[in-house]
Design a protein around this nucleic acid. Structure first.
Length: 595
DNA sequence: ATAGGGTTAG
Protein backbone atom coordinates (compact mmCIF):
# COMPACT_ATOMS: atom_id res chain seq x y z
CA UNK A 1 0.00 0.00 0.00
CA UNK A 2 1.34 3.39 -0.98
CA UNK A 3 0.76 6.45 1.14
CA UNK A 4 -0.08 9.75 -0.60
CA UNK A 5 3.09 11.72 -0.98
CA UNK A 6 3.45 14.92 1.03
CA UNK A 7 3.41 18.27 -0.77
CA UNK A 8 6.76 18.85 -2.28
CA UNK A 9 6.55 22.53 -3.20
CA UNK A 10 8.35 25.27 -1.28
CA UNK A 11 5.23 26.32 0.64
CA UNK A 12 4.69 22.72 1.72
CA UNK A 13 8.27 22.43 2.93
CA UNK A 14 7.92 25.60 4.97
CA UNK A 15 4.64 24.36 6.51
CA UNK A 16 6.30 21.09 7.40
CA UNK A 17 9.14 22.90 9.09
CA UNK A 18 6.75 25.14 11.05
CA UNK A 19 4.74 22.19 12.28
CA UNK A 20 7.81 20.24 13.32
CA UNK A 21 8.95 23.31 15.26
CA UNK A 22 5.55 23.61 16.92
CA UNK A 23 5.72 19.96 17.92
CA UNK A 24 9.16 20.49 19.36
CA UNK A 25 7.82 23.13 21.73
CA UNK A 26 4.52 21.39 22.46
CA UNK A 27 3.93 20.82 26.17
CA UNK A 28 0.24 20.12 26.58
CA UNK A 29 -2.48 17.99 25.12
CA UNK A 30 -4.46 21.11 24.23
CA UNK A 31 -1.65 22.52 22.12
CA UNK A 32 -1.21 19.11 20.57
CA UNK A 33 -4.83 19.04 19.41
CA UNK A 34 -4.32 22.44 17.78
CA UNK A 35 -1.18 21.26 16.04
CA UNK A 36 -2.94 18.11 14.93
CA UNK A 37 -5.71 20.25 13.41
CA UNK A 38 -3.09 22.31 11.54
CA UNK A 39 -1.52 19.10 10.25
CA UNK A 40 -4.84 17.97 8.84
CA UNK A 41 -5.65 21.36 7.30
CA UNK A 42 -2.24 21.42 5.68
CA UNK A 43 -2.82 17.91 4.37
CA UNK A 44 0.30 16.69 6.11
CA UNK A 45 -1.20 13.85 8.14
CA UNK A 46 0.77 11.30 6.17
CA UNK A 47 4.05 13.12 6.38
CA UNK A 48 6.44 10.60 7.85
CA UNK A 49 8.39 12.83 10.27
CA UNK A 50 5.28 14.64 11.42
CA UNK A 51 3.15 11.60 12.11
CA UNK A 52 5.99 9.88 13.91
CA UNK A 53 6.58 12.94 16.06
CA UNK A 54 2.87 13.36 16.79
CA UNK A 55 2.53 9.73 17.76
CA UNK A 56 5.59 9.84 19.96
CA UNK A 57 4.32 12.87 21.78
CA UNK A 58 0.89 11.36 22.38
CA UNK A 59 2.20 8.00 23.51
CA UNK A 60 5.14 9.02 25.63
CA UNK A 61 4.79 12.53 26.97
CA UNK A 62 3.26 13.02 30.40
CA UNK A 63 0.61 15.23 28.92
CA UNK A 64 -0.08 12.80 26.12
CA UNK A 65 -3.03 10.51 25.68
CA UNK A 66 -2.85 6.84 24.82
CA UNK A 67 -6.30 6.65 23.23
CA UNK A 68 -5.30 9.41 20.88
CA UNK A 69 -1.94 7.73 20.29
CA UNK A 70 -3.65 4.51 19.31
CA UNK A 71 -5.80 6.35 16.74
CA UNK A 72 -2.76 8.10 15.29
CA UNK A 73 -0.88 4.82 15.13
CA UNK A 74 -3.67 3.15 13.18
CA UNK A 75 -3.60 5.99 10.64
CA UNK A 76 0.04 5.43 9.86
CA UNK A 77 0.52 3.34 6.75
CA UNK A 78 3.20 0.79 7.17
CA UNK A 79 4.53 1.96 10.55
CA UNK A 80 8.26 1.83 11.08
CA UNK A 81 10.17 0.56 14.12
CA UNK A 82 10.11 4.06 15.67
CA UNK A 83 6.33 4.14 15.51
CA UNK A 84 5.98 0.68 17.03
CA UNK A 85 8.42 1.70 19.73
CA UNK A 86 6.34 4.73 20.64
CA UNK A 87 3.12 2.80 21.07
CA UNK A 88 4.79 -0.13 22.87
CA UNK A 89 6.61 2.25 25.18
CA UNK A 90 3.48 4.26 25.89
CA UNK A 91 1.46 1.26 26.99
CA UNK A 92 4.36 -0.37 28.83
CA UNK A 93 4.09 2.17 31.61
CA UNK A 94 0.34 2.70 31.43
CA UNK A 95 -2.29 1.03 33.55
CA UNK A 96 -2.74 -1.56 30.83
CA UNK A 97 0.74 -2.89 30.12
CA UNK A 98 -0.84 -5.92 28.47
CA UNK A 99 -1.68 -3.68 25.47
CA UNK A 100 2.02 -3.12 25.07
CA UNK A 101 2.60 -6.86 24.78
CA UNK A 102 -0.22 -7.10 22.20
CA UNK A 103 1.39 -4.42 20.03
CA UNK A 104 4.72 -6.21 20.32
CA UNK A 105 3.06 -9.45 19.19
CA UNK A 106 1.53 -7.66 16.25
CA UNK A 107 4.83 -6.08 15.35
CA UNK A 108 6.79 -9.33 15.24
CA UNK A 109 4.09 -11.34 13.52
CA UNK A 110 2.58 -9.07 10.90
CA UNK A 111 4.68 -5.97 10.48
CA UNK A 112 6.54 -5.96 7.22
CA UNK A 113 9.94 -4.48 6.70
CA UNK A 114 10.76 -3.54 10.26
CA UNK A 115 12.21 -5.42 13.16
CA UNK A 116 12.34 -4.81 16.90
CA UNK A 117 15.46 -2.98 18.02
CA UNK A 118 17.04 -2.62 21.45
CA UNK A 119 14.47 0.01 22.39
CA UNK A 120 11.55 -2.22 21.48
CA UNK A 121 12.93 -4.98 23.67
CA UNK A 122 13.53 -2.64 26.59
CA UNK A 123 9.95 -1.39 26.43
CA UNK A 124 8.28 -4.76 26.06
CA UNK A 125 10.36 -6.17 28.93
CA UNK A 126 9.20 -3.33 31.11
CA UNK A 127 5.65 -4.22 30.14
CA UNK A 128 6.21 -7.92 30.94
CA UNK A 129 7.51 -6.91 34.34
CA UNK A 130 4.14 -5.41 35.12
CA UNK A 131 1.91 -8.06 33.57
CA UNK A 132 1.13 -10.92 35.93
CA UNK A 133 1.79 -14.43 34.61
CA UNK A 134 3.92 -13.16 31.76
CA UNK A 135 6.69 -15.70 32.39
CA UNK A 136 6.37 -17.46 29.07
CA UNK A 137 6.16 -14.17 27.19
CA UNK A 138 9.32 -12.98 28.92
CA UNK A 139 11.10 -16.18 27.94
CA UNK A 140 9.93 -15.75 24.35
CA UNK A 141 11.15 -12.13 24.25
CA UNK A 142 14.42 -13.26 25.77
CA UNK A 143 14.72 -15.81 22.94
CA UNK A 144 14.10 -13.13 20.33
CA UNK A 145 16.74 -10.94 22.00
CA UNK A 146 19.29 -13.73 21.77
CA UNK A 147 18.41 -14.49 18.13
CA UNK A 148 18.86 -10.86 17.18
CA UNK A 149 22.16 -10.62 19.02
CA UNK A 150 20.93 -7.93 21.38
CA UNK A 151 21.86 -10.05 24.37
CA UNK A 152 25.14 -8.17 24.17
CA UNK A 153 23.41 -4.84 24.79
CA UNK A 154 23.92 -3.53 28.31
CA UNK A 155 20.55 -1.77 28.57
CA UNK A 156 18.57 -4.71 27.22
CA UNK A 157 20.31 -7.04 29.66
CA UNK A 158 19.65 -4.72 32.57
CA UNK A 159 15.99 -4.72 31.64
CA UNK A 160 16.06 -8.51 31.47
CA UNK A 161 17.55 -8.67 34.95
CA UNK A 162 14.89 -6.42 36.42
CA UNK A 163 12.12 -8.20 34.57
CA UNK A 164 13.18 -11.63 35.82
CA UNK A 165 14.01 -10.55 39.36
CA UNK A 166 10.80 -8.57 39.69
CA UNK A 167 8.88 -11.77 39.10
CA UNK A 168 10.75 -13.97 41.49
CA UNK A 169 13.15 -15.47 38.97
CA UNK A 170 16.21 -14.17 40.75
CA UNK A 171 18.41 -17.06 39.64
CA UNK A 172 17.70 -16.37 35.95
CA UNK A 173 18.35 -12.69 36.60
CA UNK A 174 21.70 -13.57 38.10
CA UNK A 175 22.51 -15.74 35.10
CA UNK A 176 21.81 -12.87 32.69
CA UNK A 177 23.96 -10.60 34.82
CA UNK A 178 26.88 -13.00 34.95
CA UNK A 179 26.74 -13.74 31.24
CA UNK A 180 26.39 -10.24 29.89
CA UNK A 181 29.62 -9.21 28.19
CA UNK A 182 29.86 -5.74 29.75
CA UNK A 183 28.48 -4.40 32.98
CA UNK A 184 28.17 -0.72 33.74
CA UNK A 185 27.24 1.08 36.94
CA UNK A 186 23.53 0.77 36.24
CA UNK A 187 23.65 -2.96 35.69
CA UNK A 188 25.55 -3.48 38.94
CA UNK A 189 23.08 -1.27 40.77
CA UNK A 190 20.15 -3.15 39.29
CA UNK A 191 21.55 -6.50 40.33
CA UNK A 192 22.17 -5.25 43.86
CA UNK A 193 18.76 -3.68 44.31
CA UNK A 194 17.06 -6.74 42.79
CA UNK A 195 18.78 -8.96 45.32
CA UNK A 196 17.94 -6.58 48.12
CA UNK A 197 14.27 -6.28 47.16
CA UNK A 198 13.95 -10.04 46.81
CA UNK A 199 15.35 -10.52 50.31
CA UNK A 200 18.68 -11.98 49.16
CA UNK A 201 20.69 -9.65 51.33
CA UNK A 202 23.88 -11.64 51.56
CA UNK A 203 23.92 -11.93 47.79
CA UNK A 204 23.45 -8.17 47.53
CA UNK A 205 26.43 -7.55 49.79
CA UNK A 206 28.50 -10.16 48.00
CA UNK A 207 27.70 -8.51 44.67
CA UNK A 208 29.13 -5.32 46.09
CA UNK A 209 32.42 -7.12 46.83
CA UNK A 210 32.58 -8.11 43.16
CA UNK A 211 31.60 -4.61 42.12
CA UNK A 212 34.56 -3.15 43.98
CA UNK A 213 36.88 -5.53 42.19
CA UNK A 214 35.34 -4.48 38.86
CA UNK A 215 36.19 -0.87 39.66
CA UNK A 216 33.00 0.75 38.37
CA UNK A 217 32.61 3.16 41.30
CA UNK A 218 29.29 3.72 43.03
CA UNK A 219 26.52 6.28 43.37
CA UNK A 220 23.43 6.96 45.47
CA UNK A 221 21.50 4.09 43.93
CA UNK A 222 24.23 1.64 44.89
CA UNK A 223 24.22 2.95 48.44
CA UNK A 224 20.47 2.72 48.87
CA UNK A 225 20.33 -0.94 47.82
CA UNK A 226 23.30 -1.87 49.97
CA UNK A 227 22.13 0.06 53.01
CA UNK A 228 18.76 -1.64 52.85
CA UNK A 229 20.51 -5.02 52.90
CA UNK A 230 22.81 -3.90 55.73
CA UNK A 231 19.70 -2.94 57.69
CA UNK A 232 18.15 -6.35 57.15
CA UNK A 233 21.17 -8.39 58.19
CA UNK A 234 22.41 -5.97 60.84
CA UNK A 235 25.70 -5.24 59.10
CA UNK A 236 26.58 -2.07 60.99
CA UNK A 237 30.31 -1.99 60.17
CA UNK A 238 29.64 -2.06 56.45
CA UNK A 239 26.86 0.48 56.94
CA UNK A 240 29.28 2.87 58.65
CA UNK A 241 31.74 2.40 55.81
CA UNK A 242 29.02 3.21 53.27
CA UNK A 243 28.07 6.27 55.33
CA UNK A 244 31.67 7.45 55.10
CA UNK A 245 31.64 6.99 51.33
CA UNK A 246 28.33 8.80 50.99
CA UNK A 247 29.77 11.78 52.79
CA UNK A 248 32.96 11.71 50.70
CA UNK A 249 30.94 11.72 47.51
CA UNK A 250 28.62 14.46 48.70
CA UNK A 251 25.65 12.09 48.60
CA UNK A 252 24.33 12.93 52.06
CA UNK A 253 22.01 15.55 50.63
CA UNK A 254 20.36 12.85 48.57
CA UNK A 255 17.15 12.18 50.48
CA UNK A 256 17.04 8.50 49.45
CA UNK A 257 20.53 7.95 50.81
CA UNK A 258 19.74 9.80 54.05
CA UNK A 259 16.58 7.75 54.55
CA UNK A 260 18.38 4.50 53.91
CA UNK A 261 21.11 5.50 56.39
CA UNK A 262 18.57 6.32 59.10
CA UNK A 263 16.87 3.01 58.60
CA UNK A 264 20.17 1.14 58.59
CA UNK A 265 21.31 2.72 61.86
CA UNK A 266 17.96 2.19 63.54
CA UNK A 267 17.76 -1.44 62.46
CA UNK A 268 21.34 -2.05 63.57
CA UNK A 269 20.45 -0.74 66.99
CA UNK A 270 22.26 2.59 66.87
CA UNK A 271 19.56 5.21 67.33
CA UNK A 272 22.01 7.99 68.13
CA UNK A 273 23.62 7.66 64.74
CA UNK A 274 20.17 7.53 63.11
CA UNK A 275 19.29 10.75 64.90
CA UNK A 276 22.46 12.48 63.81
CA UNK A 277 21.79 11.61 60.15
CA UNK A 278 18.23 12.84 60.59
CA UNK A 279 19.42 16.14 62.10
CA UNK A 280 21.80 16.69 59.22
CA UNK A 281 19.22 16.23 56.48
CA UNK A 282 18.28 19.24 54.41
CA UNK A 283 15.14 17.68 52.98
CA UNK A 284 12.88 15.21 54.79
CA UNK A 285 10.01 13.22 53.34
CA UNK A 286 7.53 10.67 54.67
CA UNK A 287 10.19 7.94 54.56
CA UNK A 288 12.51 10.03 56.70
CA UNK A 289 9.90 10.60 59.39
CA UNK A 290 8.58 7.07 59.30
CA UNK A 291 12.06 5.66 59.69
CA UNK A 292 12.45 7.66 62.91
CA UNK A 293 8.99 6.83 64.28
CA UNK A 294 9.33 3.14 63.43
CA UNK A 295 12.96 3.07 64.61
CA UNK A 296 12.16 4.44 68.04
CA UNK A 297 9.01 2.33 68.16
CA UNK A 298 10.72 -1.02 67.63
CA UNK A 299 13.30 -0.08 70.23
CA UNK A 300 10.48 0.27 72.74
CA UNK A 301 10.92 4.03 73.02
CA UNK A 302 7.29 4.95 72.48
CA UNK A 303 7.37 8.45 73.94
CA UNK A 304 10.14 9.47 71.57
CA UNK A 305 8.28 7.89 68.65
CA UNK A 306 5.31 10.04 69.63
CA UNK A 307 7.53 13.12 69.78
CA UNK A 308 8.74 12.49 66.23
CA UNK A 309 5.15 12.04 65.16
CA UNK A 310 4.32 15.48 66.60
CA UNK A 311 7.27 17.10 64.89
CA UNK A 312 6.29 15.41 61.67
CA UNK A 313 2.84 16.99 61.82
CA UNK A 314 4.41 20.38 62.59
CA UNK A 315 6.62 19.96 59.55
CA UNK A 316 3.45 19.50 57.50
CA UNK A 317 4.07 15.88 56.52
CA UNK A 318 0.99 13.67 56.42
CA UNK A 319 1.35 10.37 58.30
CA UNK A 320 0.48 7.11 56.56
CA UNK A 321 -0.37 3.63 57.77
CA UNK A 322 3.29 2.79 58.41
CA UNK A 323 3.63 5.81 60.69
CA UNK A 324 0.86 4.41 62.84
CA UNK A 325 2.42 0.95 62.94
CA UNK A 326 5.55 2.55 64.36
CA UNK A 327 3.57 4.55 66.92
CA UNK A 328 1.53 1.54 68.01
CA UNK A 329 4.48 -0.78 68.37
CA UNK A 330 6.31 1.91 70.37
CA UNK A 331 3.33 2.35 72.71
CA UNK A 332 2.94 -1.39 73.04
CA UNK A 333 6.57 -2.06 73.95
CA UNK A 334 6.64 0.79 76.43
CA UNK A 335 3.30 -0.07 78.02
CA UNK A 336 1.66 3.20 76.93
CA UNK A 337 -1.78 1.65 76.67
CA UNK A 338 -4.02 4.70 76.59
CA UNK A 339 -1.74 6.60 74.19
CA UNK A 340 -1.76 3.58 71.90
CA UNK A 341 -5.55 3.47 71.93
CA UNK A 342 -5.63 7.19 71.22
CA UNK A 343 -3.43 6.85 68.12
CA UNK A 344 -5.33 3.81 66.91
CA UNK A 345 -8.55 5.83 67.04
CA UNK A 346 -6.86 8.86 65.51
CA UNK A 347 -6.31 6.86 62.33
CA UNK A 348 -10.01 6.77 61.52
CA UNK A 349 -11.16 9.96 63.23
CA UNK A 350 -8.52 12.34 61.89
CA UNK A 351 -6.89 10.72 58.93
CA UNK A 352 -9.65 8.72 57.38
CA UNK A 353 -7.51 5.60 57.36
CA UNK A 354 -8.87 2.11 57.80
CA UNK A 355 -6.69 0.25 60.36
CA UNK A 356 -5.30 -2.87 58.71
CA UNK A 357 -4.66 -6.30 60.13
CA UNK A 358 -1.22 -5.22 61.35
CA UNK A 359 -2.70 -2.29 63.27
CA UNK A 360 -5.16 -4.61 64.92
CA UNK A 361 -2.27 -6.93 65.73
CA UNK A 362 -0.49 -4.02 67.43
CA UNK A 363 -3.61 -3.22 69.41
CA UNK A 364 -3.96 -6.83 70.59
CA UNK A 365 -0.30 -6.74 71.56
CA UNK A 366 -0.75 -3.38 73.31
CA UNK A 367 -3.47 -4.73 75.59
CA UNK A 368 -2.05 -8.21 75.89
CA UNK A 369 1.47 -7.14 76.81
CA UNK A 370 0.03 -4.87 79.48
CA UNK A 371 -1.89 -7.79 80.97
CA UNK A 372 -5.28 -6.55 79.78
CA UNK A 373 -6.01 -9.89 78.17
CA UNK A 374 -9.78 -9.50 78.15
CA UNK A 375 -9.58 -6.25 76.24
CA UNK A 376 -7.15 -7.92 73.83
CA UNK A 377 -9.67 -10.70 73.31
CA UNK A 378 -12.41 -8.14 72.70
CA UNK A 379 -10.33 -6.49 69.99
CA UNK A 380 -10.06 -9.77 68.10
CA UNK A 381 -13.73 -10.60 68.55
CA UNK A 382 -14.89 -7.23 67.28
CA UNK A 383 -12.55 -6.76 64.36
CA UNK A 384 -13.34 -7.95 60.91
CA UNK A 385 -10.17 -9.96 60.53
CA UNK A 386 -10.75 -12.32 63.44
CA UNK A 387 -10.10 -15.15 61.06
CA UNK A 388 -6.46 -14.17 60.96
CA UNK A 389 -4.28 -16.59 62.94
CA UNK A 390 -1.70 -13.88 63.60
CA UNK A 391 -4.06 -12.08 65.97
CA UNK A 392 -4.72 -15.24 68.00
CA UNK A 393 -1.05 -16.05 68.05
CA UNK A 394 -0.26 -12.57 69.36
CA UNK A 395 -2.81 -13.10 72.11
CA UNK A 396 -1.33 -16.48 72.96
CA UNK A 397 2.08 -14.83 73.29
CA UNK A 398 0.62 -12.32 75.75
CA UNK A 399 -0.94 -15.15 77.71
CA UNK A 400 2.51 -16.66 78.01
CA UNK A 401 3.92 -13.44 79.48
CA UNK A 402 1.09 -13.28 82.00
CA UNK A 403 0.70 -17.03 82.58
CA UNK A 404 -2.98 -16.95 81.71
CA UNK A 405 -4.19 -20.48 81.00
CA UNK A 406 -7.84 -19.67 80.43
CA UNK A 407 -7.46 -17.12 77.64
CA UNK A 408 -4.47 -18.99 76.29
CA UNK A 409 -6.74 -21.98 75.74
CA UNK A 410 -9.28 -19.80 73.96
CA UNK A 411 -6.57 -18.53 71.62
CA UNK A 412 -5.36 -22.05 70.96
CA UNK A 413 -8.88 -23.30 70.28
CA UNK A 414 -9.34 -20.61 67.66
CA UNK A 415 -6.01 -21.39 66.06
CA UNK A 416 -6.99 -25.04 65.83
CA UNK A 417 -10.39 -24.13 64.39
CA UNK A 418 -8.71 -22.04 61.72
CA UNK A 419 -6.47 -25.00 60.96
CA UNK A 420 -3.53 -22.73 61.63
CA UNK A 421 -2.03 -24.10 64.84
CA UNK A 422 1.63 -24.96 64.58
CA UNK A 423 4.28 -26.43 66.81
CA UNK A 424 5.28 -22.98 68.03
CA UNK A 425 1.76 -22.36 69.32
CA UNK A 426 1.78 -25.71 71.14
CA UNK A 427 5.07 -24.80 72.76
CA UNK A 428 3.68 -21.46 73.90
CA UNK A 429 0.67 -23.06 75.52
CA UNK A 430 2.78 -25.90 76.93
CA UNK A 431 5.05 -23.27 78.50
CA UNK A 432 2.05 -21.63 80.14
CA UNK A 433 0.88 -25.02 81.45
CA UNK A 434 4.38 -25.77 82.67
CA UNK A 435 4.59 -22.49 84.55
CA UNK A 436 1.40 -23.16 86.46
CA UNK A 437 2.44 -26.79 87.04
CA UNK A 438 -0.34 -28.24 84.94
CA UNK A 439 1.21 -31.57 83.97
CA UNK A 440 -1.89 -32.78 82.12
CA UNK A 441 -1.87 -29.71 79.92
CA UNK A 442 1.78 -30.21 79.10
CA UNK A 443 1.09 -33.84 78.20
CA UNK A 444 -1.79 -32.83 75.92
CA UNK A 445 0.39 -30.37 74.08
CA UNK A 446 3.10 -32.93 73.71
CA UNK A 447 0.62 -35.35 72.21
CA UNK A 448 -0.71 -32.71 69.88
CA UNK A 449 2.78 -31.91 68.67
CA UNK A 450 3.49 -35.58 68.03
CA UNK A 451 0.21 -36.23 66.24
CA UNK A 452 0.51 -33.15 64.03
CA UNK A 453 4.08 -33.82 63.09
CA UNK A 454 6.45 -31.02 63.84
CA UNK A 455 6.91 -28.24 61.41
CA UNK A 456 9.23 -25.70 62.90
CA UNK A 457 11.04 -22.71 61.58
CA UNK A 458 14.72 -23.38 62.04
CA UNK A 459 16.27 -20.68 64.17
CA UNK A 460 19.31 -18.77 63.00
CA UNK A 461 21.36 -15.80 64.13
CA UNK A 462 23.66 -13.44 62.28
CA UNK A 463 26.62 -11.66 63.76
CA UNK A 464 28.85 -9.20 61.98
CA UNK A 465 32.58 -9.38 62.61
CA UNK A 466 34.63 -6.86 60.66
CA UNK A 467 33.12 -6.69 57.20
CA UNK A 468 31.73 -10.22 57.21
CA UNK A 469 28.34 -11.43 58.37
CA UNK A 470 28.36 -14.91 59.92
CA UNK A 471 25.29 -17.07 60.19
CA UNK A 472 24.69 -19.73 62.84
CA UNK A 473 21.89 -22.26 63.17
CA UNK A 474 20.90 -24.37 66.19
CA UNK A 475 23.70 -26.76 67.08
CA UNK A 476 25.63 -25.51 64.09
CA UNK A 477 28.47 -27.84 63.19
CA UNK A 478 28.98 -26.69 59.63
CA UNK A 479 31.91 -24.34 60.10
CA UNK A 480 35.54 -25.37 59.90
CA UNK A 481 36.19 -23.70 63.26
CA UNK A 482 33.32 -25.56 64.96
CA UNK A 483 35.47 -27.14 67.68
CA UNK A 484 37.00 -23.84 68.65
CA UNK A 485 33.57 -22.16 68.88
CA UNK A 486 32.10 -24.91 71.05
CA UNK A 487 35.14 -24.82 73.29
CA UNK A 488 34.71 -21.08 73.69
CA UNK A 489 31.00 -21.48 74.37
CA UNK A 490 31.67 -23.98 77.13
CA UNK A 491 34.15 -21.53 78.67
CA UNK A 492 31.61 -18.74 78.49
CA UNK A 493 28.93 -20.91 80.07
CA UNK A 494 31.35 -21.79 82.83
CA UNK A 495 32.11 -18.13 83.54
CA UNK A 496 28.49 -17.01 83.65
CA UNK A 497 27.59 -20.01 85.82
CA UNK A 498 30.00 -18.59 88.38
CA UNK A 499 27.88 -15.43 88.41
CA UNK A 500 24.71 -17.41 88.97
CA UNK A 501 23.46 -18.34 85.49
CA UNK A 502 21.53 -21.59 85.55
CA UNK A 503 20.51 -23.25 82.31
CA UNK A 504 16.73 -23.22 82.26
CA UNK A 505 15.27 -26.63 82.82
CA UNK A 506 11.69 -25.58 83.44
CA UNK A 507 11.14 -26.33 79.79
CA UNK A 508 12.24 -29.92 79.92
CA UNK A 509 8.78 -30.88 78.71
CA UNK A 510 9.77 -29.55 75.32
CA UNK A 511 12.45 -32.13 74.94
CA UNK A 512 10.65 -33.58 71.98
CA UNK A 513 13.12 -34.56 69.33
CA UNK A 514 13.77 -31.88 66.78
CA UNK A 515 12.12 -29.17 68.75
CA UNK A 516 13.50 -25.71 68.34
CA UNK A 517 10.72 -23.40 67.34
CA UNK A 518 10.04 -20.18 69.23
CA UNK A 519 13.25 -20.66 71.11
CA UNK A 520 12.20 -23.59 73.19
CA UNK A 521 15.01 -25.97 73.39
CA UNK A 522 16.04 -29.52 73.51
CA UNK A 523 18.12 -30.22 76.53
CA UNK A 524 21.80 -30.07 75.82
CA UNK A 525 21.26 -28.15 72.64
CA UNK A 526 22.87 -24.82 71.77
CA UNK A 527 20.78 -22.06 70.27
CA UNK A 528 22.18 -20.08 67.41
CA UNK A 529 22.59 -16.88 69.43
CA UNK A 530 24.70 -18.65 72.05
CA UNK A 531 27.03 -19.81 69.30
CA UNK A 532 27.07 -16.35 67.77
CA UNK A 533 27.87 -14.75 71.12
CA UNK A 534 30.72 -17.18 71.86
CA UNK A 535 32.05 -16.58 68.36
CA UNK A 536 31.76 -12.80 68.80
CA UNK A 537 33.60 -12.83 72.11
CA UNK A 538 36.45 -14.86 70.69
CA UNK A 539 36.79 -12.78 67.52
CA UNK A 540 36.49 -9.19 68.75
CA UNK A 541 38.65 -7.11 71.10
CA UNK A 542 37.63 -6.61 74.73
CA UNK A 543 34.72 -4.24 75.17
CA UNK A 544 33.48 -4.37 71.56
CA UNK A 545 29.69 -4.27 71.30
CA UNK A 546 28.18 -7.46 69.86
CA UNK A 547 25.25 -7.09 67.47
CA UNK A 548 23.12 -10.07 66.70
CA UNK A 549 20.12 -10.50 64.46
CA UNK A 550 17.84 -13.46 65.08
CA UNK A 551 14.92 -14.69 62.99
CA UNK A 552 12.80 -15.97 65.92
CA UNK A 553 12.03 -14.54 69.31
CA UNK A 554 14.73 -14.90 71.92
CA UNK A 555 13.94 -17.73 74.34
CA UNK A 556 14.03 -17.22 78.06
CA UNK A 557 17.15 -19.25 78.60
CA UNK A 558 19.11 -17.36 75.96
CA UNK A 559 17.79 -14.06 77.29
CA UNK A 560 19.05 -14.87 80.76
CA UNK A 561 22.33 -16.20 79.34
CA UNK A 562 22.91 -13.00 77.39
CA UNK A 563 22.26 -10.84 80.43
CA UNK A 564 24.90 -12.76 82.38
CA UNK A 565 27.37 -12.58 79.51
CA UNK A 566 26.98 -8.80 79.27
CA UNK A 567 28.01 -8.59 82.91
CA UNK A 568 30.67 -11.28 83.07
CA UNK A 569 32.47 -10.10 79.94
CA UNK A 570 31.63 -6.42 80.26
CA UNK A 571 30.11 -6.29 76.78
CA UNK A 572 27.17 -4.45 75.39
CA UNK A 573 25.12 -6.91 73.37
CA UNK A 574 22.35 -5.79 71.04
CA UNK A 575 19.99 -8.52 69.90
CA UNK A 576 17.37 -7.78 67.30
CA UNK A 577 14.81 -10.57 67.35
CA UNK A 578 11.72 -11.08 65.28
CA UNK A 579 9.73 -8.67 67.41
CA UNK A 580 12.00 -6.08 69.00
CA UNK A 581 15.44 -5.00 70.15
CA UNK A 582 17.11 -6.11 73.34
CA UNK A 583 20.02 -3.99 74.59
CA UNK A 584 21.96 -6.02 77.15
CA UNK A 585 24.32 -4.18 79.48
CA UNK A 586 25.71 -4.85 82.96
CA UNK A 587 23.50 -7.88 83.42
CA UNK A 588 20.28 -6.10 82.47
CA UNK A 589 18.16 -5.86 79.35
CA UNK A 590 16.34 -2.83 77.98
CA UNK A 591 13.15 -4.88 77.64
CA UNK A 592 13.05 -5.24 81.43
CA UNK A 593 12.47 -8.97 80.94
CA UNK A 594 9.17 -8.21 79.33
CA UNK A 595 8.91 -9.46 75.78
C1' DA B 1 15.48 12.00 18.78
C1' DT B 2 13.41 7.72 21.36
C1' DA B 3 16.04 2.96 26.85
C1' DG B 4 17.88 0.70 32.14
C1' DG B 5 18.19 2.22 38.66
C1' DG B 6 16.48 3.89 44.80
C1' DT B 7 14.40 4.04 50.76
C1' DT B 8 10.09 2.76 55.45
C1' DA B 9 6.02 -1.96 57.34
C1' DG B 10 5.00 -7.18 56.35
Amino acid sequence: MLSPSPPSDAAGASKTKTILNLLQGCNSLKKLHKIHACVIIAGLQNHRAISTKLLNFCAVSVSGCLVHAQLLFRQIHNPKTDDWNSIIRGFSRSSSPLQSVFFYNEMVSVAAGCRPDTYTFSFVLRACERVPLAESKRKEVHGAIIRSGYDRDVVVCTNLIRSYAGNGEIETARKVFVEMPLRDLLSWNSMISCYSQAGFHHEALRTYDLMRIANVGLDGFTLVGLLSSCAHVGALNLGVELHRMASEKGLLKNVYVGNALIDMYAKCGNLNAALSVFDGMQKRDIFTWNSMVVGYGVHGRGDEAIEFFRQMLLAGVQPNSITFLGLLSGCSHQGLVEEGVKYFNLMTSNYNMEPGIKHHGCLVDLFGRAGKLKRALEVINTCRSQKDPVLWRTLLGSCKIHKNVQIGEIAMRNLVQLGASNAGDCVLLATIYGEVNNADGVATMRKMIKSQGIKTTPGWSWIEIGDQVHKFIVDDKSRPDTNEIYLKLRQVIHEVALLGYVEEDSMSFTSVEGFSDQGCCRIGSYHSEKLAIAFGISRTPQGTCLRIVKNLRVCRDCHSFTKFVSKAFNREIVVRDRVRFHHFKDGLCSCKDYW
